[in-house]
Design a protein around this nucleic acid. Structure first.
Length: 274
DNA sequence: TCCCAGGCGGTAG
DNA sequence: CTACCGCATGGG
């Protein structure tokens, strides 16, 4: 077990922010478990003290970048315009959220499924996908299923995926998997792309990936902090609170985290009370 | 029950 | 360019 003290870090807020659909609160208090790619982690928090139930090497090499632990989120929070009462409230509500560095392939499939779908159903769809096409693995005596690789998912037919409840997104999954395996879009190249706009444009070559889904992938996998996914909730907020547009200039290099604070606030925060 | 969900692709004007 | 439409399914 690794114990560290972290500022502006909250498992509760990370879990509920809806970036990772395979993170769950357990029966134990303030204890969570998550599966990312083929890795399982149990993690708990008391105040600013966070316990990672894993080896030193795994912590340093995998979970530090995954949870963006080396970044100072106080720097983002300081930048918020105090006269922007809406954003200030959103940040206060969602303080502790991190922008995760999740697996690119997993985010592509996850956010293909997310479109025109509700969060609990997205979760169950992904879980079924993992059970059906992923690998059964063990961490100690805990069994879990890895997220299927492109090769593993390539055996799925559109009809099979429809039976799994993917709906009309089944075709997108089949076509996108084929595109990746055929090398029409390269995951390695996407990881190397320095510019957000370039990666976004490349992702939009995939079937079922439009502007919003591409932005989610850019933010939650590629860590392009200027990506600003606009979904139905964010659209409402922009119309209501930012009629003259979101202050992009001010939040250059941190638009993504501001989007997450807003999304979280709308999802479970004190919406409508201002 | 009935509405809707972290949209996208296609078509029409 | 913008405006619409159809799409699958089950959670609340």
């Amino acid at each position: 077990m690794i114990t560290v003290e972290l500022d502006n870090f909250s498992l509760r807020e990370i879990c509920r922010s809806g970036q990772c659909f395979r993170m769950h609160e357990t029966a134990e208090n303030n204890t969570y478990e998550l599966v990312a790619g083929d890795k399982y982690l149990k993690i708990s928090q008391a105040g600013s003290i966070v316990n990672f139930y894993c080896s030193d090497v795994e912590f340093i090499c995998y979970w530090v970048p995954y949870f963006d632990i080396d970044s100072d989120y106080g720097r983002y929070i300081e930048k918020v315009n105090p006269r922007d009462t809406y954003l200030s409230a959103a940040v206060q509500c969602g303080n502790g959220i991190r922008i995760l560095r999740q697996d690119l392939w997993e985010m592509i499939i996850t956010f293909l499924i997310s479109q025109q779908n509700n969060i609990s159903r997205i979760r169950s769809c992904i879980e079924r996908l993992c059970v059906r096409y992923g690998e059964k693995l063990k961490a100690g005596d805990t069994e879990y299923y890895s997220f299927p690789t492109p090769q593993q998912l390539s055996v799925a037919t559109e009809e099979e995926l429809r039976r799994l409840g993917m709906g009309y997104r089944a075709r997108y999954i089949v076509e996108t998997t084929r595109s990746i395996l055929a090398g029409e879009v390269s995951l390695e190249k996407l990881y190397q792309m320095k510019y957000y706009r370039r990666a976004r444009k490349e992702l939009m070559k995939l079937s079922g990936v439009g502007e919003k889904v591409a932005d989610c992938i850019c933010l939650f996998a590629l860590h392009h902090m200027d990506a600003f996914p606009i979904d139905t909730h964010i659209r409402q907020v922009l119309d209501e609170h930012y009629r003259r547009g979101f202050p992009n200039r001010r939040y250059h290099g941190m638009r993504g985290i501001m989007q997450q604070y807003i999304f979280y606030y709308e999802l479970i925060g004190e919406r409508g009370k201002i």
